[in-house]
Nucleic acid binder design. Structure first.
Lengths: 94, 94
DNA sequence: AAATTTGGTTTATTTTATAAACTAGTTTAC
DNA sequence: GTAAACTAGTTTATAAAATAAACCAAATTT
C-alpha cells in the first residue's frame, strides 16, 4: 500500500533545502537561508543532518575575508529526493 | 517563494488518513488502522487532531454489539488537502 | 576602539509523533 | 458461568524532531 516516507526528507525545511539544491546543484548557506527564510541555527542543524546522510556535501572556504559554507547535492541525495517524490505521489494521488 | 506547508497535513499518518478519505469519503477506524498499519493509539490521536481542525467528522455507533467509529471527510478537509497538494508540488518540482 | 553586523555553531526549549498502558465491553473455551 | 483472550478504542507517558535562543569568532562600520 502506501510506502513509508523517508523521514529525513519529510521535513519542511530539509525538503526546501533539497528542492533548492536539485535545481541549483550547489548553493551558499546564506542563499539557502534567504530563500527558505529559516533561522541560521535551524538551517545549520538541518544541513548537518543532510550531510550526515550523504545527501549533500559541505565545502567551507572564504569569500573575500568572510567565511563561506557551500552545499553541494550528491547523487545519493538526488536519488533519495526522486524516490521521495515517487512515494509521496501515492499519498497525493498524482 | 515556497509556501509554508500545512503542518496538520504534513504528517505521514495524518496525510495517509486524509488520502484514504479523499478516495473513500468515509471509512471505519478499523479499516483506516489496517490500511495505514498504524497503532490504534497513534491513529486515535491523529484522528482527533483532524477532527478538531474540522477536516473530518467522527460518527460513533455500533456494528452489531461492537463499538464503531466512522470518519467522514468534510469539504474543509478536501479543500485543505487539495491546497496542500498544490503547495507541495512546488517543493517537488511537479 | 567600541558597537554592530556577518556567518555561522551549539545548546536548550518547544512541539510533535509514537508507543505503552489502560478502559470498556464481547466472544470463546472450559 | 466465569476466566481468558480478543476487539475497539482512549488516555497518558516517552521518544524524537523541529525550532529558537544563546553564543562565538571575525569583519565592518561609526
Amino acid at each position: 500500500m502506501l510506502k513509508k516516507l523517508n523521514p529525513l526528507l519529510h521535513s519542511e525545511l530539509r525538503l526546501a533545502i533539497m528542492s533548492l539544491l536539485v535545481s541549483m546543484q550547489k548553493a551558499e548557506f546564506t542563499l539557502i537561508k534567504e530563500k527558505t527564510e529559516a533561522t541560521a541555527g535551524n538551517l545549520s542543524v538541518q544541513i548537518t543532518k543532510l550531510e550526515e546522510a550523504g545527501y549533500l556535501r559541505v565545502e567551507k572556504g572564504f569569500k573575500g575575508k568572510m567565511p563561506q559554507t557551500i552545499c553541494i547535492i550528491t547523487k545519493v541525495g538526488i536519488e533519495a529526493f526522486e524516490q521521495y517524490v515517487e512515494d509521496l505521489k501515492e499519498y497525493l494521488k498524482l
